[in-house]
C-alpha cells in the first residue's frame, strides 16, 4: 500500500501519451473487427462488376442482385429456420445439462472430480469428421437422422464442455456463505438456489447459452452429414459457397453473419456480464 502512495504522480505529458495510446488501441481493435464486416456488407450490396473492380467504392451502390439471389434460392428460409431451431435446442440442452454439472463441480467434493473435469474437455478432442460416420449410422437406425433434435444433441456435446466450465467458474465465484445463510433462514437447498444463487448467476448462464448458440450456428460438418432435408443455413450455404463466384461469396457471407450479429447484439447485455463489464 505504501509503495503506491510513494509513487510519483504521472506527469501530464505522460498521461496524455497514455490516453493517446488507449485511443489508438481502441481504434485499432474496432477496425480489426469492423473492417471485415464493413467490406463484407459493401461487397454484398454491390453489383458483380463492382465486386471484381478496383478501386473499391466507399459506399456500396445498393445493388441487391446478389442478396436477393440468396433470399430466393430454394430452401434458404427453411434452412434459416432450421438453424435457429437447432441452435435454440442446443442452447437449452447444453444449459439444462451444463449448469447443474457446473454447480455440482463447484459445490461438492466427490471422488474423481478432477478426472471428470478433464473428461468433459476430452469430448472436444475427437474431430467431428471422425465421429460423424458412426453417429450417422446410429441416427439412421434410431430414426433421429435428419431431425433438428438429433443434430441439436450432437451440437450439445460440442457446447457442453464450455457450458460446464463457464458455469463452474460462475458458481465458484458466488460465495457459498450466501447459500448457507439462506439455509439458516429456513430455505431448502432448492429454494436457496432459486432465490439466491440463480439471480446472481443468471447473466453468466445466459452468456454461456449465447456461446452454445453460436457454436451450433457455426458448425458445418455434422450438420452436412446428419441432415439432408432439414439442413441448417450454415451447412446449406457453406457446401456451395466455397466454390461460388466472388460476389455470391460476399452475399452468402453476409447472409450467414448478419443473423448471428443481430442475435449477439440483442443479447449483448448478458454477454458483457460474463466478462464483468457493466452495461448499465
Amino acid at each position: 500500500m505504501s509503495a503506491v502512495a510513494e509513487m510519483p504522480i504521472a506527469a501530464p505529458a505522460t498521461r496524455k501519451a497514455g490516453n493517446w495510446l488507449l485511443v489508438a488501441t481502441v481504434i485499432l481493435l474496432s477496425v480489426w473487427v469492423l473492417l471485415p464486416i464493413y467490406l463484407l456488407i459493401v461487397n454484398a450490396l454491390s453489383s458483380p462488376e463492382e465486386v471484381t473492380a478496383f478501386p473499391k467504392r466507399f459506399f456500396p451502390s445498393f445493388d441487391f442482385g446478389s442478396l436477393s439471389f440468396f433470399i430466393n434460392f430454394a430452401g434458404v428460409g427453411r434452412a434459416l429456420w432450421n438453424s435457429v431451431l437447432v441452435a435454440t435446442l442446443t442452447m437449452i440442452l447444453s444449459i439444462g445439462f451444463g449448469a447443474p454439472a457446473g454447480y455440482a463441480l463447484s459445490r461438492f467434493d466427490f471422488p474423481g472430480k478432477g478426472t471428470f473435469r478433464f473428461l468433459v474437455l476430452m469430448t472436444r478432442a475427437f474431430p467431428l469428421p471422425l465421429l460423424a460416420l458412426p453417429l450417422a449410422v446410429m441416427f439412421i437406425r434410431t430414426g433421429l437422422d435428419d431431425t433438428a433434435i438429433g443434430l441439436a444433441l450432437v451440437h450439445t456435446t460440442l457446447a457442453l464442455p464450455f457450458a460446464v466450465l463457464i458455469t463452474f467458474s460462475l458458481f465458484s465465484g458466488i460465495p457459498v456463505e450466501l447459500e448457507e445463510a439462506a439455509w439458516t433462514l429456513g430455505c431448502t437447498r432448492l429454494q436457496a438456489f432459486r432465490k439466491v444463487i440463480l439471480p446472481l448467476a443468471l447473466p453468466g448462464i445466459a452468456a454461456s447459452a449465447v456461446f452454445a448458440f453460436t457454436i451450433s450456428w457455426n458448425e458445418v460438418f455434422a450438420a452436412a452429414v446428419l441432415t439432408i432435408e432439414n439442413r441448417t443455413l450454415t451447412a446449406f450455404l457453406l457446401q456451395s459457397l466455397g466454390e461460388s463466384p466472388l460476389y455470391l461469396k460476399f452475399a452468402g457471407g453476409a447472409a450467414l453473419v448478419i443473423p448471428a450479429l443481430i442475435f449477439i447484439f440483442a443479447v449483448r447485455k448478458y454477454l458483457f456480464a460474463m466478462w464483468g463489464i457493466a452495461n448499465r
Partner: peptide
C-alpha cells in the same frame, strides 16, 4: 442436394452401413 466430397462420402457410407 449438393455436398462436399467429405460429407458426401460419409453420409453415403453411413446409409450403407445402416
Amino acid at each position: 442436394q449438393v455436398a462436399e466430397d467429405g460429407p458426401w462420402l460419409t453420409r453415403l457410407q453411413a446409409e450403407l452401413q445402416a
